[in-house]
Amino acid sequence: MSNPAGAYMARPRPNLMSGGSAAPKLPAPAFPGHDLPIAPRIEIVPTRSQKRARPKIAYAAVVVTGVLAIVVTQLMLSIGLSDGAYEISSLQQTQKELDRSNQVLSEQFDKLSSPQNLAASAESLGMVANSAPVYLRLSDGAVLGSPVAASASAPTLTGGQTLIPNSLLVAPSVTAATGTPAAAGTGTGTGAATGTGTGTATATGTAAAGATPDAASAPPAAQPQADVPWQGALPSPTTR
């Protein structure tokens, strides 16, 4: 028995010097310093296998910690997942709202870019159609056709009549917007402005109308000067 505890275990001390003849030399078992002899304590010594089968506290600790860790992890995971669910839900809500905004804006865009609206707007700005188109051929710089500036009294595209109905257009926005400032002579567009494009267009219209109130609004086109030589290479479209 290597266990030093064994030292306290009372048991007949084996005769280490079993020489037979030496026995009588030994004193009777007695504890020096003690007057009274102590009764020997007796205990059952577990067998080797019994000792092995006994659970150890370290193991228990590991298991308990493990279980706790798993529980906590799972809890965190659940919290994370449901957090995610709420986040998804709120993002989906945001997406829905953005989709709606997108729809509103594209509807408005399509409506405003309809030819009826564009033509009415162009006319309200005093734009006229030039019936003499002229082409510049990029390959050799040739001017094809004879350039003639349109006069302010040239007929407009629609003659001011919207003959092609579009029930989505309640009122052509630019027309509505220009009316006020042109009459009042102020520089701010305060009509039924419905977008950036409208705002810009309004400002232009006002300026034109303010400058030449009677000669309508076509700004005099620059007279073409045929005798100005072209310097350098002509711009030419490139493709890759």
Binding site: D110, S113, S114, Q116, I164, P165, N166, S167, L168
Partner: peptide, 8 residues
């Protein structure tokens, strides 16, 4: 259904 260009 909507038709942005109306009768065009």
């Amino acid at each position: 259904r909507t038709y942005p260009n109306g009768a065009v």
